[in-house]
Write a protein that binds this DNA or RNA. Structure first.
Length: 296
DNA sequence: CAGTGTCAAGGTGGA
DNA sequence: TCCACCTTGACACTG
C-alpha cells in the first residue's frame, strides 16, 4: 500500500505545471517551460521519497499544449534524456504513478471531434509515460463522460470507443466512478465488456451509488485489475464541511481516514488523496497509516 | 508592482 | 439560448 497526492507540492516552492497563454506560444517558450517543469517534477519526486510518499499523480500540464495542433515540436525526442532520468528515478524508488486528464477529455461524446481531440490528449499522456519507460502499472484515469440524456447509450459509446483505442492507451487507461453521473456499478459493467480496470473513488461512491457498500466495491473493483496493471488504485477524499455535497475537504479528516483504512484492510490498494492541501494531508495520512501492516 | 480578468478544450442545469 | 458552475492556479494585462 502506498499513499499519494496529486500534481502539486506547496512545500517546495516550484511548480511542475507552469504554463502560458496559447497566444504567446512559441517553440522556445515551450522548451523553457517544459525544462522547468521537468526539473521541478524531479524535485517533487525526491521530496516524496524523503517523506515516505510512494504514490504521485503527475500533472497533465507538464507539457503545455502537447496535443494542441499548434505544438509541432517533437517534445518526446527533445526531452528524451530528461524523461529517461525521471523514469529511472521513479523505477528505482518504487514510486507509483498516475495521471488524470481533465474535464475536457471525454471519450463518449456524441461529437466525434471532441472524441478525436480527447484521444489525441490521451496519446500525449501515454507518450509521456512511455517516454519515461514506465511499465503499464503507471495509469491514466478517466471518467466515463457525459450522459447526454441517455446513460445507457452513453456507456455503450464509451465501450465502442475504448475498443478502438490504440493499445498504447488501452494499456494504461482505467475508468473511475464520478460523483454525479456514472456509478461504480456502471464502471464495473464497462469492465465486463472491455476488461478495463476500474479505479474506485471512495468519496464519489459515497455521493453516487446504488446501495453497494464500500467494502464490497473495493473487492469488486480490485478484481478488475489484471496482472500487469499493478496494485489497484483508489481515490480517497471526504466531504468539505461547508460546501456542496461532493466538494473535497481542505484537509484530511483523520477519523474518516482511519475508518477507511479499517474498511479497506482486507485489500492491498494504493491510495490517492484528493484533498486540497495536497502533501500536508498526505504526510498526515502516512503517519496515520504507519501502523497498518500493508504500509511499508 | 499590485490587482485582477481571463485562460484550449465539455457537460450540466437553472434562468 | 445563455450563463454560472465544476475546480484551480497562475498568466499576463491594466493602471
Amino acid at each position: 500500500m502506498k499513499i499519494g497526492y496529486p500534481c502539486i507540492n506547496r512545500s517546495i516552492g516550484c511548480s511542475s505545471g507552469r504554463t502560458f497563454r496559447l497566444a504567446s506560444y512559441s517553440d522556445e517558450r515551450l522548451i523553457t517551460t517544459v525544462a522547468g517543469n521537468l526539473t521541478c517534477l524531479q524535485r517533487i519526486l525526491e521530496w516524496n521519497i524523503e517523506n515516505r510518499i510512494g504514490f504521485f499523480r503527475i500533472t497533465s500540464d507538464i507539457i503545455p499544449f502537447a496535443s494542441h495542433p499548434i505544438c509541432t515540436l517533437p517534445w518526446k525526442e527533445h526531452f528524451q534524456d530528461e524523461l529517461e532520468v525521471i523514469g529511472g528515478f521513479i523505477r528505482d524508488s518504487g514510486m507509483r504513478i498516475s495521471m488524470h486528464p481533465d474535464q475536457f477529455i471525454i471519450l463518449n461524446s456524441p461529437d466525434e471531434k471532441v472524441v478525436s481531440r480527447s484521444i489525441d490528449e490521451l496519446m500525449y499522456h501515454a507518450d509521456l509515460l512511455d517516454g519515461m519507460n514506465l511499465d503499464r502499472t503507471a495509469k491514466i484515469q478517466l471518467h466515463v463522460g457525459g450522459v447526454y440524456g441517455d446513460a445507457e447509450q452513453s456507456i455503450l459509446r464509451f465501450i465502442r470507443t475504448y475498443k478502438n483505442l490504440d493499445s498504447v492507451i488501452q494499456n494504461r487507461l482505467v475508468v473511475e466512478n464520478d460523483d454525479q453521473r456514472f456509478t461504480t456499478a456502471d464502471c464495473l459493467k464497462i469492465h465486463e465488456e472491455t476488461g478495463i480496470p476500474v479505479l474506485f473513488d471512495v468519496f464519489h461512491h459515497s455521493c453516487n451509488n446504488t446501495g453497494e457498500d464500500t467494502g464490497e466495491m473495493l473487492d469488486m473493483t480490485g478484481r478488475t485489475w489484471g496482472n500487469g496493471d499493478g496494485i489497484p488504485m483508489t481515490d480517497y477524499s471526504s466531504q468539505h464541511p461547508e460546501k456542496r455535497a461532493g466538494s473535497h475537504t481542505e484537509h484530511i479528516d483523520p477519523d474518516d481516514f482511519r475508518c477507511f483504512l479499517t474498511i479497506s484492510r482486507p485489500y492491498d490498494i494504493d491510495i490517492m488523496l484528493e484533498i486540497k492541501d495536497k502533501e500536508k494531508s498526505a504526510m498526515e495520512a502516512v503517519s496515520i497509516a504507519g501502523s497498518d501492516p500493508r504500509f511499508g
